[in-house]
């Protein structure tokens, strides 16, 4: 089991009902973790339209997760 720190923004924040949470997970990649969270929180955004950041840096969806990682799924951005 890995302990992962999660932060949620925009639509994911609304769906999760919280800005941040800590979870224990068996998921070994960001992609697997997102699938798991979709089931829990009912996220409707497809990973195809998102990016993921681990420890505040963009990374591939298949990047292995390590205990203590900080993970943020990035919904389509709309700044500017």
């Amino acid at each position: 089991m890995r302990r992962i720190e999660l932060e949620y923004f925009a639509q994911l924040h609304d769906a999760a009902g919280c800005a941040a949470e800590r979870r224990e997970t068996e998921a070994d990649t960001a992609a697997a973790l997102y699938d798991e969270l979709c089931a829990i929180h009912g996220f409707s955004l497809s990973p195809a339209c998102m990016r993921v950041a681990v420890n505040a840096a963009f990374c591939p969806w298949d990047q292995p997760l390590r205990d203590g990682d900080h993970v943020v799924f990035i919904p389509p951005v709309s700044g500017g």
Binding site: F9, A10, A53, V72, I74, P75, V77, S78, G79, G80
Partner: peptide
């Protein structure tokens, strides 16, 4: 401005 709108994690 194009890259900010495309890449920077800001949501409105």
């Amino acid at each position: 401005i194009d890259e900010i709108k495309r890449r920077v994690p800001i949501w409105k």
